Computed example of a mutant assay.
Amino acid sequence: ASGTDHGDIRVLVGRGPGGFGVSPEECPQSSLYIVALRKELPTEAFYEKGLTAFASAIPPKQEYLARIKSTNYLPNVFMAAEARQRGMDVAVTFDEDGHLGEAAIANVGIVDAEGRLCCPEGRRILPGTSMLAARKIAPQRLPVVERPIRREEIFTAREMLLFTSASLCVGISHFEGRPIGQGPDAGRPGPVARWLRDALLEHMLATGTPF
C-alpha cells in the first residue's frame, strides 16, 4: 500500500463512532484502521554513535495504566518535548523509589557490572516486543534477570540499551552527560548492543509473517 520496501504497519482499534462523552455505550460499533507508513531503516552511523539519555521529570504511568496500549500518549509527548529542550535523544522515567522505568515509546535495560542483561519489572512499564524478544535471545550469551534497577546502577553498568521496534536494540552511550561503560567501550555502544541488534533482526526475519 505504501509502495516501498521498508516501512511500518500500525493497527489501531477504537471504540468507533459516537458522541463526545466517555461512555462506550454511545458507540454502535468498534473501528479498525491498518496504516502503512513509509520509513527508512536506521543507518550504521546511528548504531555506531548511540544515543544520549537523561532522567525525565515526567513520572511513570500508574500501574493499572502502564501495561495498557492506549491513546494516552500525553506523558510520552511531554517526554519527547523534554528531550528536545535538553538537547538529548531519550528521556527515561524513574518511579518514586528511584527505579528505572521506560522511555517515551521504548523499553530500556542495562548490562550490569556482573555482565547480566537486566530489564525493569513489568509493573510500571509496557513490555515491548523487541525487549521481550531480547530476553529470549540473550541467554545464548549472558544471563537475563527482571528486577528493579536503581538509578545509580546506570553509572556502574557495562552498557545501557534501548529497545524499539524501529531500531531493535541500540546502545545508550551517555546518561546525564556521563559516559556509560568502562574501558575502550566507555561512551560508545558496547558489544551486547551490537550483537543484540543483529540477533533481533535475525530472529524477526526467521519468525515474522512473510507478506
Results as ranks from 00 to 15, higher is better:
residue 28 P to G: 05
residue 164 T to K: 07
residue 22 V to S: 06
residue 190 G to H: 00
residue 137 I to K: 02
residue 137 I to W: 03
residue 105 I to A: 13
residue 51 L to Q: 00
residue 22 V to E: 11
residue 5 D to H: 14
residue 147 R to S: 02
residue 202 E to H: 11
residue 23 S to R: 04
residue 182 Q to I: 12
residue 154 I to Y: 01
residue 172 I to D: 00
residue 139 P to G: 09
residue 165 S to L: 10
residue 105 I to Y: 13
residue 183 G to Y: 08
residue 88 M to S: 05
residue 74 L to E: 07
residue 202 E to K: 13
residue 12 L to R: 05
residue 95 D to P: 10
residue 34 I to P: 02
residue 130 S to T: 10
residue 101 G to C: 15
residue 168 L to A: 08
residue 98 G to H: 05
residue 208 G to M: 10
residue 58 I to R: 01
residue 26 E to T: 13
residue 193 A to S: 15
residue 44 E to A: 15
residue 75 P to Q: 09
residue 176 E to C: 04
residue 1 A to M: 14
residue 7 G to M: 05
residue 79 M to W: 03
residue 126 L to S: 02
residue 170 V to N: 00
residue 1 A to W: 08
residue 15 R to G: 07
residue 37 L to P: 01
residue 59 P to L: 13
residue 83 A to D: 05
residue 73 Y to S: 08
residue 86 R to I: 03
residue 166 A to E: 14
residue 24 P to N: 04
residue 187 G to P: 00
residue 43 T to S: 15
residue 122 G to P: 06
residue 125 I to A: 03
residue 36 A to C: 09
residue 201 L to N: 12
residue 51 L to V: 02
residue 3 G to H: 07
residue 202 E to V: 08
residue 159 E to C: 06
residue 66 A to Q: 08
residue 134 A to V: 00
residue 148 P to T: 05
residue 76 N to F: 04
residue 122 G to N: 12
residue 130 S to M: 05
residue 145 V to S: 11
residue 34 I to D: 06
residue 24 P to V: 01
residue 119 C to N: 14
residue 169 C to K: 01
residue 145 V to L: 13
residue 136 K to N: 11
residue 41 L to F: 13
residue 54 F to Y: 11
residue 100 L to W: 00
residue 166 A to I: 12
residue 64 Y to R: 12
residue 113 A to Y: 05
residue 153 E to R: 04
residue 23 S to P: 04
residue 84 R to C: 06
residue 50 G to Q: 03
residue 137 I to G: 01
residue 86 R to V: 02
residue 128 G to P: 02
residue 177 G to Y: 08
residue 74 L to T: 07
residue 33 Y to G: 05
residue 111 V to Q: 03
residue 147 R to M: 02
residue 32 L to D: 10
residue 182 Q to M: 14
residue 111 V to N: 01
residue 146 E to M: 07
residue 69 K to T: 07
residue 56 S to C: 11
residue 68 I to E: 10
residue 106 A to L: 04
residue 74 L to A: 09
residue 14 G to W: 10
residue 188 R to N: 04
residue 8 D to A: 12
residue 143 P to Q: 05
residue 94 F to S: 04
residue 34 I to V: 15
residue 160 M to V: 15
residue 196 L to M: 15
residue 142 L to P: 00
residue 47 Y to A: 04
residue 37 L to W: 09
residue 40 E to D: 12
residue 162 L to Q: 08
residue 159 E to G: 03
residue 73 Y to F: 10
residue 160 M to Q: 11
residue 83 A to F: 06
residue 15 R to H: 05
residue 152 E to R: 11
residue 52 T to K: 08
residue 210 P to T: 09
residue 106 A to W: 00
residue 21 G to Q: 06
residue 178 R to Q: 13
residue 33 Y to M: 05
residue 65 L to W: 07
residue 136 K to Q: 15
residue 101 G to H: 10
residue 192 V to W: 05
residue 65 L to A: 12
residue 45 A to D: 14
residue 142 L to S: 01
residue 152 E to G: 07
residue 16 G to R: 10
residue 126 L to H: 02
residue 96 E to W: 09
residue 71 T to S: 11
residue 183 G to S: 14
residue 46 F to E: 14
residue 9 I to C: 12
residue 146 E to K: 06
